[in-house]
Amino acid sequence: MSRTHVGSVDEFEHGDRTLTSVDGTSVGVFCVDDEFYALENECPHQGGPACSGRIGGEIVAEIPEPGKRKEERISDNLVVACPWHGWEFEIETGIHLGDDSICLEKFEVVVEDGEVYVTS
């Protein structure tokens, strides 16, 4: 098992992201609510840099009752959009928003003495 140093916990705020290389693989490391998540930076669609795209809340909708306009809002669930074609992935799980059989590979993140590491 190898460990790749990503940075100090202090360097990250909620919604921050950095790209790093883990054994030659490009990986995106994200901070969400003081937790860290690492996902492979290669989109399963056509190989785009999925983790480098726009970070935002998942758009969700509710129907108050039939016949009423659906209420769309941006939720707290952070997602990242591949900049090549817009495929969006939940940061906490790496799962595609539209099909849970599609996902970015997840890497283990360890925080030790205030330092963030990705293990592989």
Binding site: G53, R54, A81, P83, W84, H85, G86, E88
Partner: peptide, 9 residues
């Protein structure tokens, strides 16, 4: 362009 999600380098 999906309200900014699509980007081109």
């Amino acid at each position: 362009n999906l309200y900014g999600r699509i980007q081109r380098d």
